[in-house]
C-alpha cells in the first residue's frame, strides 16, 4: 500500500498575481504500517502535500505512484484511491451535515456502495474506535461538544476502512485534555489496526511522542526526513524555520551544558526521567 511522490511540485493560480508555489520538488515514500509525522509552520505546504496523497490535488509537475501505479494515468481508479487513503481535514467537524451522528458516519461507507448491514457494522465499529459515547449516537452532530464533534467526524472517515489514514492538524483548536485524548486515541488505533498513519501538526510535543519518522516542511520543500531524534538534534536550525524542539529537549541540553552526563537527544518526558534517574544510579 505504498505511496511514492517523485519530484512533486504544486503551483496555485498559475499565471496571475496570486501565483503561489506551495510545493517544490518534493520526493518521499510512505512505507507500510509506519506512523509518519509532518511538521512545518503555517503556510509551509503541509496541507497541500497531503492532498496529493489521495488525489484531491494534481501535481503541477512530478509523479505520484500508488502501489506502483502512476496516479495521473487516465485509467487509474481515482475513486478507489480516495477510499483507500482516508483524509481527515483540519476542523473536520465542519463537514458534518446529517441530522444524526449515526447517519453522518454512514455517508462514507454508503458512497462505497456497501450493503445496509455492512454499513451499520462499520459505523458502530468506527464510533467504538474513536471512543464516541454510545448514548450520543442518535444525537444531532450540531449539539455535541468540540471534542465529540471531532471524534464523530474522524469516525466518518474511519468507517470507510482506509489502508492509510491522514490527519491534518487533528488537535487544532482543542484544549490540552481534548488534544491528549485525540492523540492517544490515534496512537491506540495505530497499534491495534497496524495501519499507516500520517499525522500533520505544527506542534513538536504532539508529534514527538508517537511517530516513527518526521518530515519537516519549510517553504514548500522537505528540510529533514528522519527519526524524531535525528530531527530534533537540529533544534537550532528548526528555530530558524519558526519551529521548536520539545521543551524537554531544551532542558536536557541545558543540563548537559551545566555538566550533567545526560544524552542530548531526549525528546519525551519518559526518556528524560530515565536519563535523570540514571544519573543517580537508579534504573
Amino acid at each position: 500500500m505504498s505511496i511514492i511522490l517523485d519530484k512533486v511540485s504544486h503551483v496555485y493560480s498559475p499565471g496571475n498575481a496570486y501565483e503561489t508555489t506551495a510545493l517544490s520538488n518534493v520526493s518521499l515514500k510512505i512505507e507500510d504500517n509506519e506512523f509518519l509525522g509532518i511538521i512545518g509552520h503555517t503556510g509551509s505546504g503541509k496541507s497541500t502535500l497531503i492532498q496529493h496523497m489521495n488525489g484531491l490535488l494534481k501535481p503541477s509537475s512530478g509523479t505520484i505512484y500508488y502501489n506502483g501505479k502512476d496516479t495521473s494515468k487516465k485509467d487509474f481508479p481515482r475513486k478507489e484511491l480516495r477510499s483507500k487513503v482516508g483524509m481527515v481535514f483540519q476542523y473536520p467537524e465542519h463537514q458534518l451535515f446529517e441530522p444524526t451522528v449515526f447517519e453522518d458516519v454512514c455517508f462514507g461507507p454508503k458512497n462505497l456502495g456497501l450493503s445496509k448491514e455492512e454499513v451499520d457494522d462499520r459505523v458502530y465499529e468506527a464510533l467504538k474506535l474513536v471512543e464516541f459515547p454510545e448514548e450520543l449516537i442518535s444525537a444531532s452532530p450540531f449539539d455535541l461538544s468540540g471534542g465529540q464533534k471531532r471524534r464523530a467526524a474522524i469516525a466518518g472517515v474511519l468507517a470507510m476502512k482506509p489502508d492509510i489514514l491522514i490527519l491534518d492538524e487533528p488537535t487544532a483548536g482543542l484544549d490540552p485534555k481534548g488534544r491528549d485524548e485525540i492523540l492517544g486515541m490515534i496512537d491506540k488505533m495505530h497499534k491495534k489496526t497496524k495501519n499507516t498513519v500520517v499525522l500533520v501538526s505544527h506542534s513538536m510535543e504532539d508529534i514527538a511522542r508517537f511517530v516513527d519518522r518526521i518530515i519537516v516542511m519549510n517553504h514548500g520543500k522537505i528540510e529533514y526526513d528522519d527519526t524524531p531524534k535525528g530531527v530534533f538534534n537540529n533544534y537550532k536550525e528548526l528555530e530558524q524555520m519558526g519551529l521548536r524542539a520539545p521543551e524537554i529537549t531544551y532542558l536536557m541540553n541545558d543540563m548537559l551544558r551545566y555538566g550533567f552526563d545526560v544524552s542530548s537527544d531526549v525528546t519525551t518526558i519518559e526518556e528524560a526521567k530515565k536519563e535523570i534517574l540514571k544519573l543517580y544510579g537508579i534504573n
Binding site: Q51, N54, L56, K79, R82, S83, G86, M87, F89, P92, H94, Q95, L96, F97, F107, G108, N111, L112, G156, V157, M160
Partner: peptide, 28 residues
C-alpha cells in the same frame, strides 16, 4: 474536498441525483 474524500460524487447522475449530492455541501 472533505466530502469527496468521503466518496461523494458531484459529477455523475441525472439532475435530481446531482441536486441531492449538493446537500452535503450546502448544509455545512
Amino acid at each position: 474536498k472533505a466530502q469527496m474524500a468521503r466518496g461523494a460524487d458531484f459529477e455523475s447522475g441525472g439532475v435530481f441525483k446531482r441536486a441531492k449530492s449538493m446537500v452535503p455541501i450546502l448544509v455545512p
